[in-house]
Simulated assay, not measured.
Amino acid sequence: MYIDLLAQPDFTSLTSSLTCGFIAGSIAPPELMRKIVTESTIKEIVVGYGTTENSPVTFLGFPRDDIVRKTETVGYIFPHTEAKVVDQVTGHIVPLHTTGELLIRGYCVMLGYWGDPEKTKEAITPENWYRTGDIASLDEFGYCRIVGRCKDMIIRGGENIYPAEIEHFLHTHPSVVEAQVVGVKDERMGEEICACLRIREDRPCSAEEIREFCKGKISHFKIPRYVVFVNEYPLTVSGKIQKFKLRELMEKRLTL
């Protein structure tokens, strides 16, 4: 929603009284946050993270907070709530600043999925930890950084690649309005990176320009093999991007 608002040429003049905002529901690229506070009248904005199963916000951050701004986190966990990051294979807690699956425990966690004890057992451990399905890291101050979804992780030739990292970088390109990255099947590497980009009408660019922009700035194996320009993304009724559908559309479009 913020991306589309900022893309309107008369956005600032129409919203001169809009000074505060709240952003959640999806990972917010740092470049987007910078644009909100520098290119609009919004000067106070809160970043929230959570899930419906957690009632629904468990971390809250303020980009004006120096720590949140510098570390690109979603803030600090709510009182009376616990968080830990564990290895997806062993289930053991990982060291600080190391990525793993984020688990939440506290008064906010749901009792279970209605009439579905099996799904409840998959989501909540015997110790009442809720598995968020999100890849994250925690620092020594308790601030949380969300990297992406477990199921969205791309495994290219044995390398684990988190789409959010590439998306954040692509948002810094002056022609890019919005970037979504998915893994598409590849016979040799298992998966390859496909960047699906919405481009500014007044700043056209080519796929090769995007790849050149990436060289020397991100790891070579994270540079998208495929760059596809799109006008829209498949969305849920609440406006969230359905990456599994986007992946299917890209594989069909690329005839993979």
Rank of each mutant, 00 (worst) to 15 (best):
R247G: 08
D10R: 07
T19M: 05
H168Q: 12
V85P: 07
V109D: 01
L197G: 12
T19K: 15
I218G: 07
F59H: 13
E201N: 12
E201C: 08
I104R: 10
D10W: 02
K240C: 02
F229M: 10
M110R: 12
S40C: 07
H220I: 13
C196G: 00
S175G: 02
L103D: 12
L138D: 01
L197I: 06
E248P: 00
F213G: 09
S175C: 01
R188L: 10
C194W: 06
R149Y: 11
P234R: 10
E82G: 11
G216L: 05
D65E: 09
G133T: 10
H171V: 00
D87T: 11
A207W: 03
D87G: 11
V182F: 13
L111W: 10
G91L: 02
G216N: 10
C194K: 03
L6H: 11
P30H: 09
G61L: 04
C150P: 00
E248Y: 04
S175K: 00
S206V: 07
A83G: 10
L32P: 08
V184I: 15
G148A: 01
E140P: 00
I3M: 05
C205G: 04
L235E: 13
H80M: 12
K70G: 06
C194E: 04
P63S: 03
I218H: 11
P117F: 02
V228M: 13
P234M: 11
I36W: 06
F169L: 14
T120R: 12
R211F: 04
G25D: 12
C214V: 06
K35E: 09
T236V: 06
N160A: 11
E167G: 07
T125Q: 01
F244V: 02
E122K: 14
D87W: 12
V182E: 09
P9V: 02
P9R: 01
P163T: 06
E248K: 13
M153S: 02
E159D: 10
P29R: 01
I77L: 11
E118I: 15
V46Y: 05
I42L: 13
T81P: 06
H173P: 03
F213Q: 08
F62E: 11
R145F: 01
S40W: 04
E208C: 00
D202K: 01
G183R: 01
P95A: 13
N160Y: 07
E122P: 04
V37C: 13
G158R: 06
Y49T: 05
Q8A: 03
C108V: 15
V177F: 00
P30N: 09
L170E: 04
F78N: 13
E39Y: 03
T99H: 15
Q88P: 14
T120E: 10
C20V: 08
I210R: 00
F169D: 03
D152L: 08
P174I: 03
S137K: 07
D202N: 04
L111T: 15
E209W: 02
D87V: 05
Y226C: 12
E39V: 00
T236L: 09
A7F: 03
T99V: 14
A195H: 04
S219K: 13
V85Q: 08
E118H: 14
D10H: 08
T120A: 06
G112V: 05
L5E: 04
C205I: 13
I67N: 05
I135P: 00
R105D: 12
V94P: 14
C20N: 15
I193T: 02
E208N: 13
W129L: 05
D66A: 15
I218Y: 10
H173S: 06
R200C: 01
P204T: 00
E208Y: 07
F11G: 02
A136I: 04
P95I: 15
